[in-house]
Amino acid sequence: MKTVKRSLGAMALAAITLITVSCNEGKKNEATAPMSNEMHQDTMDADKDMAMNDSQDAKAEAILKDYFNLKDALVGDDNAKAKGLGNTLVQSLKSFDMSSYADGKKSELKDIMEDAIEHAEHIGESDIKHQREHFKILSKDVTDMVAITGTQMKLYEQYCPMYDGGTAWLSTEKQVLNPYYGSSMLKCGKVQREIN
């Protein structure tokens, strides 16, 4: 027992010494550089050279495809699947190439992508309630993107007046399947606009 006490004593002593030492050490650190929020910027610039209208539309279609898969996972109340698909969507958003758009459109697309990536990232790591909150804004981002990029697909903008003061989303089907409520109120909503 005695030895145990002794080693505990030594431990405490060493800890105290160290605290004092590191106290002095801590003082001399300087300011950190402001964190960059634009980590995806490089990827976008890197792709610049292969700018072709076709490939861009393909990228927009890829984003839409991933968005619809995510929407279906939320319709199916599948939290784990939505997480995975949120992360897939992050990748397709990051690889979107906007280089051939006019400057005004480009900056709007950049804003849209920045925001959408953040929401998709959150969907990749949240519970289903939060996933749905982020999906609301993500839907707005994707809708605004389509307004600029256009799409080959026939889309339906649907609207549920009950969720969070009224909320829209996109679907490829006319039939309403609500991603914000899933099975608890699957049919809530109506088609408010057709695209194409």
Binding site: S7, A14, A15, L18, G26, N29, A31, T32
Partner: peptide
């Protein structure tokens, strides 16, 4: 545990202090 505790004290963190 003690030795580990001592060793990790020597890893500084970057401080967030721009003031």
């Amino acid at each position: 545990a003690l030795i580990l505790f001592i060793i990790i004290q020597f890893f500084p963190t970057e401080k967030n202090e721009s003031y």
